[in-house]
Design a protein around this nucleic acid. Sequence first.
DNA 1: GCTGATGCTTACCAAAAGGTAAGTACGAAC
DNA 2: GTTCGTACTTACCTTTTGGTAAGCATCAGC
Lengths: 117, 117
Amino acid sequence: MTTTRSGPYICGLDAAMDVVSGKWKSLILWELHDHGARRFGELRRGLPGVSEKMLIQQLREMEQDGLINREAFREVPPRVEYSLTEHGRALNEALRPLGAWGTQRRDRLTRRQPGTA
Amino acid sequence: MTTTRSGPYICGLDAAMDVVSGKWKSLILWELHDHGARRFGELRRGLPGVSEKMLIQQLREMEQDGLINREAFREVPPRVEYSLTEHGRALNEALRPLGAWGTQRRDRLTRRQPGTA
DNA sequence: GCTGATGCTTACCAAAAGGTAAGTACGAAC
DNA sequence: GTTCGTACTTACCTTTTGGTAAGCATCAGC
Protein backbone atom coordinates (compact mmCIF):
# COMPACT_ATOMS: atom_id res chain seq x y z
CA MET A 1 0.00 0.00 0.00
CA THR A 2 1.62 3.24 -1.08
CA THR A 3 -1.09 5.77 -0.24
CA THR A 4 -2.80 6.60 3.01
CA ARG A 5 -5.67 4.38 3.96
CA SER A 6 -9.12 5.86 3.48
CA GLY A 7 -12.00 3.44 3.51
CA PRO A 8 -15.52 4.73 2.99
CA TYR A 9 -15.73 5.96 6.56
CA ILE A 10 -19.13 6.13 8.19
CA CYS A 11 -18.16 8.63 10.86
CA GLY A 12 -15.10 10.35 12.28
CA LEU A 13 -14.62 7.70 14.92
CA ASP A 14 -14.35 5.17 12.14
CA ALA A 15 -11.58 7.15 10.46
CA ALA A 16 -9.72 7.53 13.74
CA MET A 17 -9.98 3.87 14.69
CA ASP A 18 -8.61 2.87 11.31
CA VAL A 19 -5.44 4.78 12.04
CA VAL A 20 -5.05 3.78 15.66
CA SER A 21 -5.90 0.09 15.56
CA GLY A 22 -2.91 -2.19 15.38
CA LYS A 23 -1.45 -3.98 18.32
CA TRP A 24 1.37 -1.52 19.00
CA LYS A 25 0.30 1.80 17.61
CA SER A 26 -1.15 3.39 20.70
CA LEU A 27 1.91 2.29 22.65
CA ILE A 28 4.22 3.77 20.01
CA LEU A 29 2.32 7.04 20.18
CA TRP A 30 2.66 7.05 23.93
CA GLU A 31 6.35 6.21 23.82
CA LEU A 32 7.07 9.00 21.36
CA HIS A 33 4.96 11.43 23.35
CA ASP A 34 6.88 10.54 26.49
CA HIS A 35 10.39 10.62 25.10
CA GLY A 36 10.27 12.83 22.01
CA ALA A 37 12.42 11.50 19.18
CA ARG A 38 13.40 7.87 19.59
CA ARG A 39 15.56 5.48 17.64
CA PHE A 40 14.27 2.20 16.23
CA GLY A 41 16.16 0.18 18.79
CA GLU A 42 15.01 2.36 21.65
CA LEU A 43 11.41 1.84 20.62
CA ARG A 44 11.93 -1.89 20.37
CA ARG A 45 13.37 -2.03 23.86
CA GLY A 46 10.59 0.22 25.12
CA LEU A 47 7.82 -2.05 23.85
CA PRO A 48 8.16 -5.39 25.60
CA GLY A 49 7.35 -8.25 23.25
CA VAL A 50 7.30 -6.44 19.93
CA SER A 51 9.16 -8.06 17.03
CA GLU A 52 11.24 -6.07 14.58
CA LYS A 53 8.90 -6.92 11.74
CA MET A 54 5.84 -5.74 13.62
CA LEU A 55 7.51 -2.59 14.88
CA ILE A 56 8.64 -1.53 11.43
CA GLN A 57 5.28 -2.38 9.92
CA GLN A 58 3.41 -0.25 12.38
CA LEU A 59 5.92 2.59 12.07
CA ARG A 60 5.59 2.58 8.27
CA GLU A 61 1.82 2.72 8.42
CA MET A 62 1.90 5.50 10.95
CA GLU A 63 4.33 7.39 8.75
CA GLN A 64 2.02 6.99 5.75
CA ASP A 65 -0.87 8.15 7.88
CA GLY A 66 1.04 11.29 8.75
CA LEU A 67 1.34 10.56 12.46
CA ILE A 68 5.11 10.29 12.72
CA ASN A 69 8.27 11.52 11.04
CA ARG A 70 11.14 9.26 10.12
CA GLU A 71 14.60 10.77 9.88
CA ALA A 72 17.50 8.61 8.73
CA PHE A 73 21.09 9.70 9.37
CA ARG A 74 23.62 8.38 6.89
CA GLU A 75 25.98 6.92 9.43
CA VAL A 76 27.44 3.52 10.11
CA PRO A 77 25.96 1.80 11.98
CA PRO A 78 22.76 3.44 10.75
CA ARG A 79 20.71 5.72 12.94
CA VAL A 80 17.02 6.42 12.42
CA GLU A 81 14.88 8.63 14.58
CA TYR A 82 11.12 8.66 14.83
CA SER A 83 9.07 11.54 16.22
CA LEU A 84 5.47 12.70 16.31
CA THR A 85 4.13 15.03 13.66
CA GLU A 86 1.65 17.75 14.54
CA HIS A 87 -1.19 15.39 13.62
CA GLY A 88 0.33 12.69 15.78
CA ARG A 89 0.49 15.05 18.74
CA ALA A 90 -3.13 16.08 18.18
CA LEU A 91 -4.13 12.42 18.04
CA ASN A 92 -2.39 11.80 21.31
CA GLU A 93 -4.32 14.62 22.92
CA ALA A 94 -7.54 13.19 21.51
CA LEU A 95 -6.68 9.82 23.01
CA ARG A 96 -6.11 11.17 26.48
CA PRO A 97 -9.72 10.84 27.75
CA LEU A 98 -9.88 7.34 26.33
CA GLY A 99 -6.73 6.44 28.19
CA ALA A 100 -8.21 7.83 31.39
CA TRP A 101 -11.37 5.79 30.88
CA GLY A 102 -9.24 2.70 30.30
CA THR A 103 -7.30 3.30 33.47
CA GLN A 104 -10.52 3.43 35.45
CA ARG A 105 -11.70 0.24 33.79
CA ARG A 106 -8.44 -1.50 34.58
CA ASP A 107 -8.74 -0.44 38.19
CA ARG A 108 -12.26 -1.85 38.32
CA LEU A 109 -11.07 -5.14 36.86
CA THR A 110 -8.08 -5.59 39.11
CA ARG A 111 -10.15 -4.79 42.18
CA ARG A 112 -12.68 -7.49 41.24
CA GLN A 113 -10.41 -10.17 39.81
CA PRO A 114 -7.12 -9.67 41.62
CA GLY A 115 -5.28 -12.59 40.01
CA THR A 116 -6.38 -12.21 36.43
CA ALA A 117 -4.96 -8.90 35.33
CA MET B 1 -15.16 -16.76 27.03
CA THR B 2 -17.46 -16.21 30.00
CA THR B 3 -15.64 -13.48 31.90
CA THR B 4 -14.61 -10.00 30.88
CA ARG B 5 -11.43 -9.70 28.93
CA SER B 6 -8.42 -8.43 30.83
CA GLY B 7 -5.06 -8.95 29.26
CA PRO B 8 -1.97 -7.81 31.09
CA TYR B 9 -2.54 -4.22 30.08
CA ILE B 10 0.45 -1.96 29.74
CA CYS B 11 -1.46 1.28 30.07
CA GLY B 12 -5.02 2.57 30.25
CA LEU B 13 -5.15 3.18 26.53
CA ASP B 14 -4.41 -0.48 26.04
CA ALA B 15 -7.33 -1.48 28.24
CA ALA B 16 -9.67 0.89 26.42
CA MET B 17 -8.62 -0.22 22.95
CA ASP B 18 -9.23 -3.83 23.91
CA VAL B 19 -12.85 -3.03 24.61
CA VAL B 20 -13.48 -0.75 21.68
CA SER B 21 -11.72 -2.57 18.88
CA GLY B 22 -13.99 -4.70 16.74
CA LYS B 23 -15.36 -3.66 13.40
CA TRP B 24 -18.78 -2.52 14.62
CA LYS B 25 -18.37 -1.59 18.26
CA SER B 26 -17.80 2.11 17.92
CA LEU B 27 -20.73 2.31 15.53
CA ILE B 28 -22.94 0.40 17.95
CA LEU B 29 -21.96 2.77 20.73
CA TRP B 30 -22.79 5.70 18.53
CA GLU B 31 -26.12 4.23 17.46
CA LEU B 32 -27.16 3.56 21.04
CA HIS B 33 -26.02 6.98 22.11
CA ASP B 34 -28.04 8.57 19.34
CA HIS B 35 -31.27 6.59 19.76
CA GLY B 36 -31.27 5.32 23.34
CA ALA B 37 -32.63 1.78 23.65
CA ARG B 38 -32.71 -0.08 20.34
CA ARG B 39 -33.94 -3.47 19.27
CA PHE B 40 -31.71 -6.05 17.61
CA GLY B 41 -33.37 -5.54 14.24
CA GLU B 42 -33.17 -1.77 14.50
CA LEU B 43 -29.45 -1.98 15.13
CA ARG B 44 -29.01 -4.31 12.20
CA ARG B 45 -30.84 -1.96 9.89
CA GLY B 46 -28.91 0.99 11.33
CA LEU B 47 -25.50 -0.55 10.58
CA PRO B 48 -25.25 -1.01 6.82
CA GLY B 49 -23.42 -4.23 5.98
CA VAL B 50 -23.36 -5.91 9.37
CA SER B 51 -24.33 -9.59 9.50
CA GLU B 52 -26.49 -11.04 12.26
CA LYS B 53 -23.63 -13.18 13.50
CA MET B 54 -21.26 -10.24 13.78
CA LEU B 55 -23.82 -7.97 15.38
CA ILE B 56 -24.67 -10.48 18.06
CA GLN B 57 -21.05 -11.31 18.66
CA GLN B 58 -20.11 -7.69 19.22
CA LEU B 59 -23.19 -7.07 21.37
CA ARG B 60 -22.36 -10.05 23.58
CA GLU B 61 -18.79 -8.89 24.08
CA MET B 62 -19.91 -5.37 24.86
CA GLU B 63 -22.40 -6.77 27.36
CA GLN B 64 -19.68 -8.82 29.03
CA ASP B 65 -17.49 -5.75 29.14
CA GLY B 66 -20.25 -3.87 30.92
CA LEU B 67 -20.85 -1.32 28.17
CA ILE B 68 -24.43 -2.21 27.30
CA ASN B 69 -27.53 -3.73 28.87
CA ARG B 70 -29.61 -6.40 27.23
CA GLU B 71 -33.28 -6.65 28.11
CA ALA B 72 -35.37 -9.49 26.67
CA PHE B 73 -39.16 -9.29 26.70
CA ARG B 74 -40.95 -12.63 26.72
CA GLU B 75 -43.17 -11.97 23.74
CA VAL B 76 -43.82 -13.57 20.39
CA PRO B 77 -42.21 -12.62 18.13
CA PRO B 78 -39.39 -11.95 20.62
CA ARG B 79 -38.27 -8.45 21.50
CA VAL B 80 -34.83 -7.57 22.84
CA GLU B 81 -33.63 -4.10 23.65
CA TYR B 82 -30.06 -2.93 24.01
CA SER B 83 -29.02 0.25 25.79
CA LEU B 84 -25.86 1.86 27.14
CA THR B 85 -24.79 1.32 30.73
CA GLU B 86 -23.21 4.11 32.72
CA HIS B 87 -19.78 2.84 31.71
CA GLY B 88 -20.87 2.76 28.09
CA ARG B 89 -22.00 6.35 28.26
CA ALA B 90 -18.71 7.37 29.88
CA LEU B 91 -16.81 5.55 27.14
CA ASN B 92 -18.78 7.41 24.53
CA GLU B 93 -17.84 10.70 26.11
CA ALA B 94 -14.21 9.64 26.21
CA LEU B 95 -14.38 8.80 22.51
CA ARG B 96 -15.73 12.19 21.53
CA PRO B 97 -12.35 13.95 21.01
CA LEU B 98 -11.12 10.97 19.02
CA GLY B 99 -14.16 11.21 16.79
CA ALA B 100 -13.51 14.90 16.29
CA TRP B 101 -9.90 14.20 15.35
CA GLY B 102 -11.07 11.55 12.90
CA THR B 103 -13.51 13.93 11.30
CA GLN B 104 -10.71 16.41 10.71
CA ARG B 105 -8.55 13.67 9.25
CA ARG B 106 -11.33 12.55 6.94
CA ASP B 107 -11.78 16.11 5.77
CA ARG B 108 -8.07 16.36 5.03
CA LEU B 109 -8.17 13.13 3.04
CA THR B 110 -11.22 13.96 0.97
CA ARG B 111 -9.81 17.37 0.14
CA ARG B 112 -6.59 15.82 -1.15
CA GLN B 113 -7.90 12.66 -2.78
CA PRO B 114 -11.42 13.58 -3.88
CA GLY B 115 -12.27 10.27 -5.57
CA THR B 116 -10.85 7.83 -3.05
CA ALA B 117 -12.96 8.25 0.05
C1' DG C 1 -50.73 -26.80 8.99
C1' DC C 2 -48.21 -23.15 6.40
C1' DT C 3 -46.19 -18.41 6.51
C1' DG C 4 -44.13 -14.70 8.72
C1' DA C 5 -41.72 -12.04 12.11
C1' DT C 6 -37.92 -11.85 15.40
C1' DG C 7 -33.66 -12.97 17.61
C1' DC C 8 -30.60 -15.75 17.57
C1' DT C 9 -27.10 -20.27 16.63
C1' DT C 10 -24.13 -23.21 13.94
C1' DA C 11 -20.89 -24.93 10.53
C1' DC C 12 -17.83 -23.72 7.36
C1' DC C 13 -14.71 -20.67 4.82
C1' DA C 14 -11.73 -16.42 3.56
C1' DA C 15 -9.03 -12.66 4.76
C1' DA C 16 -6.30 -10.06 7.74
C1' DA C 17 -3.33 -9.60 11.45
C1' DG C 18 0.41 -11.12 13.93
C1' DG C 19 4.67 -14.12 15.07
C1' DT C 20 9.32 -16.61 14.16
C1' DA C 21 13.49 -17.02 12.36
C1' DA C 22 16.75 -16.19 9.12
C1' DG C 23 19.11 -13.07 6.00
C1' DT C 24 21.04 -8.34 4.14
C1' DA C 25 23.93 -4.01 3.86
C1' DC C 26 27.25 -1.03 5.63
C1' DG C 27 31.72 0.30 7.45
C1' DA C 28 34.37 0.55 11.68
C1' DA C 29 37.17 -2.02 14.96
C1' DC C 30 40.00 -5.77 15.70
C1' DG D 1 38.95 -11.11 6.68
C1' DT D 2 36.02 -11.80 10.64
C1' DT D 3 33.01 -9.75 14.06
C1' DC D 4 29.85 -6.18 15.68
C1' DG D 5 25.98 -3.09 15.78
C1' DT D 6 22.06 -1.02 13.54
C1' DA D 7 17.97 -0.99 10.91
C1' DC D 8 15.66 -3.31 8.36
C1' DT D 9 13.65 -7.35 4.80
C1' DT D 10 11.81 -11.78 3.54
C1' DA D 11 9.59 -16.24 3.62
C1' DC D 12 6.69 -18.94 5.98
C1' DC D 13 3.38 -20.14 9.38
C1' DT D 14 -0.40 -19.58 13.11
C1' DT D 15 -4.00 -17.08 15.12
C1' DT D 16 -7.62 -14.01 15.02
C1' DT D 17 -11.23 -11.78 12.84
C1' DG D 18 -14.87 -11.33 9.75
C1' DG D 19 -18.30 -13.19 6.28
C1' DT D 20 -22.03 -16.51 4.20
C1' DA D 21 -25.62 -19.27 4.43
C1' DA D 22 -28.53 -22.22 6.57
C1' DG D 23 -31.25 -23.72 10.53
C1' DC D 24 -34.03 -23.21 15.02
C1' DA D 25 -37.83 -21.76 18.37
C1' DT D 26 -42.06 -19.43 19.27
C1' DC D 27 -46.83 -18.26 18.41
C1' DA D 28 -50.18 -15.33 15.83
C1' DG D 29 -52.69 -14.89 11.66
C1' DC D 30 -54.53 -16.97 7.83
